[in-house]
Amino acid sequence: MDVEVLGNRGARFTIIARGVDPSFINAIRRTVMADVAVPAVDKVFIAENSGVLYDEIIAHRIGLIPLKGGEGLVHPSNCECGGKGCPRCEAILTLEVEAPEDAYTVYSGRLKPEGSVFVANNDIPIAVLNKGQRIALEAHARLGSGREHAKWQPVSGAVVKYEPIIEIDTEKCSLSAKCVQACPKKILAIEGNNLKVISVWDCTLCKECVEACPNGAISVSYNPANAMLMLESEGSLSPQELIFAACEVLKDKFESIRIALENAKEAS
């Protein structure tokens, strides 16, 4: 396998894996979405809320805020407390705010970490309060996976795609530029006397260019031996860390198959 980093723009990370089946890369993608454990707020104890938004709305909004950290936390299903919640498997954040003015927006940055878990994005509005209104609450974050609830899903975009192949027959091509206009991703261009593909990985295999070409000079196909993986992290872990974590999860799953097979009894 040969991996090339195509783009690392902020939270978005794109790699190309050559010489590997897309189903293998897809296993990593699905594991990142569903099985990588990241922290999120799961319980909110509201002491005071005199604002217009109901307690449930505020609790829901706090749950959806991406959190980072929590390296020392144990997954509640493996915890001594049996999943009830204890300092080993939960980290606390508190929010205590009284609005100094009307239409005062409370942002996620006001959530004060009391343990090993921190807010990954400080600019999310949690509530809007009028002067004198108060919110006081304690939020308990725990590790979880996207399989349980979308708030634990560490990525928003997660895409696997084959390598597109765009073949241009230079003898048939009349440089009419009809395909250049037809392409919704604008990946074709005429440079001098040649039709060029600018960025082949942006191709969505829609075949608009094939239909637009009057001479049948262009053909679009794909190569399933090379695959692209794009991950867009929400801030809990960096995309690279997510891939490493997904590999660890997959390794543990395969290990459990090995152990189960060793202990398997022969059917009588």
Partner: peptide, 11 residues
């Protein structure tokens, strides 16, 4: 806070 469909933080 998040997109209903993809889960991107939009708020």
């Amino acid at each position: 806070v998040r997109c209903f469909t993809c889960g991107k933080v939009i708020a």
